[in-house]
Amino acid sequence: MSKEILTTQDLHLYYGDKEALKGINLNFDAKGITALIGPSGCGKSTYLRTLNRMNDLIPNVTITGTIKFKGQDLYAPSADTVQIRKEIGMVFQQPNPFPFSIYDNVIYGLRIAGEKDKEKLDAVVEKSLRQAAVWDEVKDHLHESALALSGGQQQRVCIARVLAVSPEIILLDEPTSALDPVSSSQIETTLLNLRHDYTVITVTHNLQQASRIADRTAFFMNGELVEVDQTKNIFMNPAEKQTEDYISGRFG
């Protein structure tokens, strides 16, 4: 059996007439962290958002090609977006906790799914917040509003909220770009904790971040995937000239 959990084949995406993704072929193995890098507007966020069908929310988007999650076509007419997003969770650029307590934020997905067992919910809250490396900071005020937390704590609560639904893949769209360096490094620690249990795919503008945390790095430019390889190869010994120019800061 192949280890590949998510595969994309010849993926094109159009905003109206404008082609934003020009035939992406990219596969992901189960577990580990993959970083998507590239200059602004290169299509890396757009690509990320096709993986759990968040682009469905934008009018006028056309997608061709195939994305398969464990062999199932995500864009098949019978595909259930609600189920897909339970298995492929997403964390956004701006921390977006709901205006409820920390506790309620974390269990929201489960509670709406009908879970009522208080002990089980308590356990999930603790486990998720521990995995997101924010438990020690919030354990004494679980029932206070999540909006009272710092940006970095909010972002980790948002990660815990996704973990609580027990997805297999976690997509992160520039999760640290709105945060200060200290909070960013805490998020990085969190992600490193997760790489053994989850398939993590993160978009980042921060090359150092990619080199610190990612097992694999994919370089996007102008809607195309230029190169994907082990992170150290991309940074030390890239195959393509464009990658080398970008890594060394000659443009972008």
């Binding site: 968040m54 929310l57 977006t81 609600v82 977006n96 709406i112 948002c158 996704v162």
Partner: peptide, 18 residues
């Protein structure tokens, strides 16, 4: 209510109505 809240809900696997 910010769009990020809607995205947050949907990304958790809630339906639109939820």
């Amino acid at each position: 209510i910010d769009t990020t809240q809607r995205e947050g809900g949907l990304a958790l696997g809630l339906s639109r109505w939820e």
